[in-house]
């Protein structure tokens, strides 16, 4: 019985965004990463080609983090003390991108200075040829203080600056505009808030092909269903032609999953939670794969084994099935 396969025809498509710049393009990266460009729902190869696979960024910190799970600190070992070495190790672990996230304070509890932030970013750029995402500690004012000088010191590198949110988007977007960088626009799990911030950002004159949107997600067990559905809705809106949703999506399953007790804690938990490391990696991996299938273009991860599994899964998902 011949079955006619219903194919969706979409009027819209996701914009293509390129992160990083080579020497010819005014930067120093050995390669660039292009995401977006989808013309159909994730991996529906029978409807349209998926021009760019989702990519994996590995999150590194400017110094050894105080609040990370010992599992992560053990697996990265000494490189966690040195962001340049960590970036190199992350590249070797298969990262497509490096996300450098600043701490609020140094190991002694003093605030990170703009000068030290610039030095750190320079060292990381030196250590790896991968394109970079640079994120402040997540407090709007501090982010501004650190990211503006970083943006100026790295003009032309097409770094992704974050977090760019409603509280500080003016400063971050201005820094991106003036120095040929990109922004990662974060809103709290809401389609309309995401659109609104994208409108504000593009209204300032930042070309839309320099905007990533981070709709925020929860980890598995901690609100993933909200992030998942918001992402599905954003991607459907983009394909239906809503210009202010047509941005590649970046999400942080590593950050979210490793914040969960299931990943962070190995002792004093129920026996039914099973082996700690296996559970923690499953927590991160399952969060990531679920969001990739909801339309994530960039997933930021922490554990090298999760990176290996997710990279393999992406390769599998990008394989066009024979019957299609």
């Amino acid at each position: 019985m011949p079955v006619e396969i219903p194919k969706d025809q979409w009027p819209g498509e996701v914009r293509t965004v390129t992160i990083g710049a080579t020497a010819e393009e005014g930067g120093t990266r050995s390669r660039v990463v292009t995401v977006g460009g989808e013309k159909t729902l994730p991996f529906m190869h029978f409807e349209a080609e998926t021009p760019n696979p989702p990519v994996v960024a590995i999150e590194i910190k400017d110094r050894r983090p105080d609040d990370w799970s010992p599992l992560l600190l053990d697996v990265w070992g000494d490189v966690a003390n040195d962001p340049a070495a960590w970036a190199k190790a992350a590249e070797e672990a298969g990262a497509d991108l490096i996300e450098l996230m600043f701490s609020l304070t140094d190991a002694e509890g003093n605030p990170i200075t703009p000068e030290s932030a610039v030095t750190t970013v320079r060292a990381v750029l030196e250590a790896t040829g991968l394109p970079l995402l640079v994120f402040g500690p997540g407090q709007a004012e501090v982010d501004n203080e650190l990211l503006v000088p970083v943006a100026e010191a790295t003009k032309g590198e097409r770094i992704v600056l974050g977090i760019c949110e409603d509280k500080n988007y003016r400063t971050i977007v201005a820094a991106a505009l003036a120095n040929d960088h990109l922004v990662s626009a974060r809103t709290p799990m809401d389609v309309n808030l995401a659109k609104q911030l994208n409108i504000l950002i593009t209204d300032m004159g930042l070309p839309p092909d320099r905007v990533l949107m981070d709709p925020t997600t929860g980890a598995l067990g901690y609100g993933i269903e909200y992030g998942y559905s918001v992402m599905e809705r954003l991607r459907l809106a983009a394909l239906q032609g809503d210009a202010m949703t047509q941005f590649p999506m970046i999400v942080t399953p590593g950050f979210e999953a490793w914040k969960a007790k299931e990943s962070k804690v190995g002792e004093g938990v129920p026996e039914s939670w099973g082996d700690w490391e296996g559970r923690a990696i499953n927590w991160e991996t399952l969060t990531a794969i679920t969001l990739i299938e909801a339309g994530a273009d960039i997933v930021v991860l922490r554990h090298p084994e999760s990176v290996r599994r997710i990279k393999a899964a992406i390769e599998e998902l990008m394989t066009v099935p024979e019957m299609a």
Partner: peptide, 19 residues
């Protein structure tokens, strides 16, 4: 394995939550 069963059961619970 509990370390797999647990996250899968939670994922199933999350996805099948009435929005």
């Amino acid at each position: 394995a509990p370390e797999l069963a647990y996250p899968l059961l939670v994922l199933r619970q999350n996805i099948y939550t009435d929005p």
